[in-house]
């Protein structure tokens, strides 16, 4: 290993310090720092290099540690596959190790083992094979990697003459599996929620509406859910986690609480 290759990590050090300053010394920050080092030592074709840089940028921009860990995992796996520099691949593996240590994303073990197994191969085809096997094993045995802290959508509430209404334009998917109606209206009666759901292969509920101890179900198709005495915050949550061939989606069309003072 040449010293000059190691020297390439120097530009990453101020970046690391900056990230530590802003984000605290979490495992995700260290994972990101090692990804910087891996990128600094990258060797290979230009398009893969730019793709690596793009993933790095995306990782930096992720708002939460678990989301950052997920993108670092993808970028590090990518680099293990794409980079012909052993040092770069070693740094990527270190980044993956910190990703696991952070606990931000589940089911990374096989992927990391595959990355470790592919490390010594100079030829990309063997690395492809090892990573492909690792990924297949991950998905088949442990399921799709999932963040520990899920992204959440918030519905915007608005006061109208006869009550409070909520709106949210983004659909619920496995990437954003929960919607929250957080603000409690001043006077309230019955909560009515409208949503369309689908993407599953059975008639089982796609999502749940949780309000205190009450739970209502959202089935495939158009739904009108009514809760007579809602307790806020109210959650609309996908019922199931990932299953192959299922594309759960719920379109929240709105909700309304008629003001209790009105008849």
């Amino acid at each position: 290993m040449r010293i000059s290759k190691l020297l390439r990590v120097i530009p990453g050090i101020p970046v690391l310090l900056f990230l530590l300053h802003w984000n605290g010394a979490g495992m995700d920050t260290f994972a990101l720092a090692f990804l910087f080092f891996a990128a600094a030592c990258y060797e290979g074709d230009r398009v893969s290099g730019v793709s690596m840089a793009a993933l790095l940028v995306l990782a930096v921009l992720q708002p939460s540690p678990s989301q950052r860990v997920a993108v670092v995992t993808a970028a590090a796996s990518w680099n293990v596959w794409a980079s012909s520099s052993l040092l770069s691949r070693v740094f990527s593996l270190a980044a993956l190790a910190f990703c696991i240590a952070s606990g931000g994303v589940t089911s990374l073990e096989f992927m990391t083992l595959a990355a470790l197994a592919s490390l010594p191969f100079r030829e990309r085809k063997w690395r492809t094979l090892a990573l492909g096997l690792g990924m297949t094993a991950t998905v088949a045995i442990l399921g799709l990697p999932q963040p520990v802290c899920r992204s959440r959508l918030y519905a915007a509430e608005r006061m109208e003459d006869d009550g409070t209404v909520w709106r949210c334009d983004s659909p619920l998917t496995l990437a954003t599996p929960e919607l929250l109606l957080d603000a409690s209206p001043p006077e309230y009666g019955k909560l009515t929620m409208w949503c369309d759901a689908g993407g599953t292969r059975t008639d089982a509920p796609v999502a749940l509406v949780i309000s205190g101890r009450d739970t209502a179900y959202v089935y495939p198709g158009s739904n009108t859910v009514e809760i007579s005495d809602p307790a806020f915050p109210v959650f609309l949550r996908l019922a199931d986690s990932w299953k192959p061939m299922n594309h759960q989606v719920v379109h929240f069309l709105g909700a309304k609480v008629i003001d209790g003072r009105h008849p």
Binding site: V105, P147, A175
Partner: peptide, 27 residues
């Protein structure tokens, strides 16, 4: 083209973690 192969591998990798961040599906 080698870049097309890279793109395809990138898609598979990102698809395997798409649930972890709302933007990853689009990427």
């Amino acid at each position: 083209n080698a870049a097309s192969v890279s793109g395809l591998v990138g898609f598979v990798l990102l698809a395997s973690i798409w649930t972890t961040s709302p933007m990853l599906f689009t990427v």
